[in-house]
Write a protein that binds this DNA or RNA. Structure first.
Length: 560
RNA sequence: AGCCUGGUGGUGUAAUGGUAGCACAGAGGUUUUUGGUACCUUCAGUCGGGGUUCGAAUCCCUGCCGGGCUGCCA
């Protein structure tokens, strides 16, 4: 890392922030925030926003706040609030003492509403949902003024106070900003800024019967926290004029809202609403199902936070709609895992091997390298004896041309152990292969011989008497279409669910040292993939291994 | 339909009036006690049409295409 930082090209947001900073705007300070609503679990899309906001703060010598946008007590739960903090910490970000809630500002927000009323810029409206909708006009036609738009300030003040006191039922009155019912931007057609909701709030209890809308809370919260750059996704672009209007008309610090395109990943859905459906309909086993793109699911699957951060950096930031290929995510994952995962031996589909010329009562251990990428990781002893198991797909009785694994008469290397040659194939009455009889070369201990003879194939194995049985869960993409939304008329995204996204292997065998691995710890089963120990136990009490991601497999590709 | 916004290889993202680059994916190869990793080579792009300019992905005009907007959700 002594390289002089090659200046990386900046995305449009960083370019703009850099310009602001160099121009001395906000006294050169940069302050961002990550503002999730606590109404669901964080997912990969949020990770992009998190990395952006915290990353930028770090790069520009600024700070990033965590703020829960809890303006709607109907949808929000403390359970989510806690999970959000947990995920954020896991991802590797620290907001120190800057943990806020939009609800911290309810008093201030309320007095700003009063200020607007006094200035004749807000009014209490008695229109029902339907009436308001009818008055709003539509995309091409302007709206009509509410009949309550010209209420006197005193009356508005009194009515708003009664709303606050809970004297009206939900939905009967709203406080609206008085802007322009003919604006081509529907958000400026006298938007509702306070609504009546008789609902306890997780933070403020029963103090409030009225709650500010997103538009009336978000920008002002940013303002109160001294946010300089308020980064959000594209769908808020039309809200920016309102954001600006409020800051101006309230005469408060005015952060700059900048919108960017949200993250999309192919073969998956990235919306809370759709994920909720998957969970509620039992298409997955909860929010932390390892197939889910939630941070909790990915974490359980074995994704490292580093790989996710790396991914978020690599996808970049721009304003155009994008769909990232999952291969990039998997690349980042494997790249990190390759560097840090200890290697172990295991077979998913055990096929018995007996070494005919190996002494009956002998057993020994061979030294296996823990991580070829990290010499400091050292080696470990792995038991070896006459009875072994190899993976069934590492043997072919009648192999194609470029197959270098085991087949009758072909010498292969049992990794870290010996060269063996299959001399006999044992079958049952139905012709299924039940056992391989092999001969080994005692001179090849450790996996090499003095004569330097070339042995192309190397396969993994486990010692029969010491191997640990376990359950292995193999995951595949949740959807079998790159764009799960692409469906026949009348269908929906669940039609594209991949029926084979979870495959359970009940009788896998792994070398004994795997039992020392703790829950969540990543390791590699050589030639098979990266795994981690799940918190679940199998029905029969065995340990459960999640396959995080398979190894890249160029042999499988050749065969396609 | 109106308004807003965007369009660079298969995917994502740079280049902001001066050699279209990087990453992933694909193809080929070298190394290898993981058909892994690493490394090398290679394929492939400025939405169309006009204009301005010595020179345009970049500026102008126009067309086409994508996305967003008609919650008292965020």
């Amino acid at each position: 890392m002594s390289e002089p930082e090659a200046e990386k090209p900046l995305d449009f947001i960083r370019t703009r922030i850099q310009e602001d900073q160099q121009a001395g705007k906000n006294d050169g300070k940069v302050h961002t925030r990550f503002p999730p609503e606590p109404n669901g679990y964080l997912h990969l899309g949020h990770a992009k926003s998190i990395c952006l906001n915290f990353g930028i703060a770090q790069e520009f010598g600024g700070l990033c706040n965590l703020r829960l946008d809890d303006t709607n007590p109907v949808a929000e739960k403390t359970e989510y609030a806690e999970a959000i903090q947990d995920d954020l910490r896991w991802l590797g970000f620290d907001w120190e003492d800057r943990f806020f809630h939009a609800s911290d500002y309810f008093d201030q927000l309320h007095s700003w509403a009063v200020q607007l009323i006094k200035a004749g810029k807000a009014f209490v409206c008695d229109l029902s949902f339907e009436e308001m909708k009818a008055h709003r006009g539509n995309l091409i036609e302007p709206g009509k003024n509410s009949p309550f738009r010209e209420r006197m300030v005193e009356e508005n003040l009194e009515l708003f106070e009664q709303m606050r006191l809970g004297e009206f039922p939900d939905g009967t009155k709203t406080l609206r900003a008085k802007i322009d019912m003919s604006s081509p931007n529907l958000n400026l057609r006298d938007p509702v800024i306070y609504r009546i909701i008789h609902q306890e709030h997780p933070k403020t209890g029963d103090k409030w019967k009225i709650y500010p809308s997103y538009d009336f809370a978000h920008g002002q919260s940013d303002s109160l926290e001294g946010i300089t750059h308020s980064l959000c996704t594209l769908e808020f672009e039309h809200h920016r004029p309102l954001y600006d209007w409020l800051c101006q008309n309230l005469g408060i610090h005015h952060p700059q809202q900048i919108e960017f395109a949200r993250l999309n990943l192919n073969y998956t859905v990235m919306s809370k609403r759709k994920m909720l459906r998957l969970v509620e309909e039992g298409r997955v086993n909860g929010w932390d199902d390892p197939r889910m793109p939630t941070l909790q699911g990915m974490r359980r699957r074995g994704y490292t936070s580093k790989s996710i951060r790396d991914f978020c950096e690599k996808v970049g930031v721009a304003k155009r709609e994008n769909v990232i290929e999952v291969e990039l995510l998997e690349h980042c994952l494997r790249h990190d895992l390759n560097l840090c995962s200890p290697r172990r031996l295991g077979v998913l589909d055990p096929l018995k091997v007996t070494i005919s010329n190996y002494p009956e009562d002998k057993s020994e251990t061979v030294d296996a390298v823990n991580n070829p990428e990290d010499p400091d990781a050292g080696t470990r002893p792995v038991p070896f004896s006459k009875q072994l198991y190899v993976d069934r797909n590492d043997f072919m009785e009648d192999p194609p041309k470029k197959y270098f694994r085991m087949s009758p008469g072909r010498e292969v290397r049992l990794k870290y152990a010996y060269y063996v040659t299959c001399t006999e194939v044992v079958k049952d009455e139905e012709g299924n292969i039940t056992e391989l009889i092999c001969e080994y070369d005692p001179e090849s201990r450790g996996g090499g011989t003095a004569d330097g003879r070339r042995v192309k194939g190397t396969i993994q194995w486990v010692d029969a008497s010491t191997a640990q049985p376990c359950e292995v869960r193999l995951y595949d993409r949740l959807f079998n279409k790159p764009d799960p939304e692409k469906v026949e008329d009348g269908g929906d995204f669940t039609d594209n669910l991949n029926p084979d996204s979870l495959e359970i292997i009940h009788h896998a065998l792994v070398e004994p040292s795997v039992t020392e691995i703790s829950i969540g710890q990543a390791f590699q089963l050589e030639r098979v993939g990266y795994f981690c120990l799940d918190s679940d136990k199998a029905e029969d009490g065995k340990k459960v291994l999640n396959r995080t991601v398979a190894m890249r497999d160029s042999w499988a590709k050749i065969n396609k």
